[in-house]
Write a protein that binds this DNA or RNA. Structure first.
Lengths: 262, 262
DNA sequence: ATATGCATGTCGCAC
DNA sequence: GTGCGACGTGCATAT
């Protein structure tokens, strides 16, 4: 069974044993987990000391390092990927020294006792997808207006119109004004009523024909009827699709595309 | 030996065994490490999926959760401290579900195979000290005003002046008021403009001659010109030097040195 | 290479 | 609780 290769674990090893495993795993670029009592010294952009206590050290294949205390989401000390490691066994201490080149930074983890050391060969090719937030959906539509419909041209976004902010604002292929309300999740009737309020507010100011389009991955149960009653439209759009659009060209400076005023 | 209590490790356990250990460790508020093949789903402020692969899951005593891939400094998924956990064993899957209340967020980790599971009782009371933060630079200047310039006498610090807080506030050797803005890193133009806003705000209140001094280890590219244009000054100061000054007299409670009001 | 803006940012502190 | 700024922020991208 090749589990043997995947995983090596020692509990309460002698320090010399632990050091040997760590050094070998570093050479083989395996992932390392060490649990034990240690002190940590950092110097670089700033400087820190962490007095002895029991923590978890993780060293990854790519040369990143994490020291985690038993409390708190963030690592207390770390080193980003690409760090270079040295292991030194002194009298009663194993020192793991991680060096980052630019900027020059050092993290030294000194183990006085090791409760567990583990060397792992992890195989992870699973795709990670982060779906868009609502604001990202706005940006995606501005980036690629055809997501809304062919011929749509955005004019402004997050425009103040008194009840609040209109998500996206533009002109369709016939020159008709279009007000767009975006929702990341299935839209309920609040979304429809919100859009209706914007439409009314804008109509009151400029008496011009308007289209209102609700953009969301889906519509709630009785929302369809309400939408039609109010003369509004619906366009299905998946946040995932937006994320994909943005991936191509992520930080277009939309702030400069449209003047805030108009 | 009470190492037994500190540490429990199983390698290649059956899923039901792994689930049992995780549930027990959660109940006892111990730190948990699980290594195995899993899929991860997140939904909350945004939404993400992570297809199956081999990763490290850490759950800490305080209810924080981390999922680490074998590459990368940052966790691919996480949940901050205070999350509530549920473990469910289905047919061929163990699901760890972490819920954060506010904002409402869910992370589900579904294990198809567990290579190692470990429950730990970590004891960590070691003090962590970070040197040379921006606030410590303030304190260093208050401690040793000559770091700014000879004859400088601080009056107040972190004083509210409407756009925000002035870092340090004092009088120079000629009795002229000095407003000091401190940056730990090379100062950009935002720092200069921030200082200028403070100066303007204070001038508006008390029509008295003011000097504005930007303190930082260095100045950004075109910042020098802007500084001069606005009639402000620059004083180079290294955070590390500040740390050294503070080391001499570490726990002076500067809060009591100056009354907040004046 | 540096500069700019975003992040499931997180965290701490003041109001 | 809510808001605001700092962070060894990290990270991705445009210049």
């Amino acid at each position: 069974m090749q589990k043997q290769n995947k995983l090596k674990v020692l509990t309460n090893p002698r320090l010399t044993e632990a050091a040997a495993i760590i050094e070998k795993a570093l050479a083989q670029r395996r992932t390392i987990i060490v649990v034990g009592e240690c002190k940590v010294l950092y110097s670089g952009r700033a400087k820190s000391t962490l007095e002895p206590g029991e923590r978890i050290l993780i060293i990854k294949e790519d040369g990143s390092l994490l020291v985690h205390r038993p409390i708190g989401y963030e690592p207390v000390n770390w080193q980003p990927s690409g760090s270079v490691f040295h292991v030194q066994t002194k009298a009663d201490v194993v020192e793991v020294h991680a060096v980052r080149q630019k900027p020059r930074e050092n993290v030294r983890v000194l183990f006085y006792e090791v409760f567990m050391v583990s060397a792992l060969s992890l195989n992870d090719s699973g795709e990670f997808s982060l779906y868009a937030s609502e604001k990202e959906m706005h940006r995606a539509i501005l980036r690629k207006p055809s997501l809304l419909e062919e011929g749509f041209t955005p004019i402004s976004y997050e425009k103040k119109v008194e009840p609040g902010f209109v998500d996206v604002y533009g002109v369709d292929k016939d020159g008709k004004l279009v007000v767009v309300e975006v929702k990341r999740k299935t839209a309920g009737k609040e979304a429809v009523l919100q859009l209706a309020r914007y439409i009314d507010a804008i109509k009151a100011k400029a008496d011009r024909e308007l289209r209102g389009v609700l953009v969301a991955p889906g519509l709630g149960k009785d929302v369809q009827r309400l939408l039609v009653t109010l003369g509004l439209e619906f366009k299905a759009l998946d946040p995932k699709k937006c994320a994909k659009v943005l991936k191509k060209d992520q930080n277009a400076k939309l702030e400069t595309f449209f003047e805030e005023g108009k």
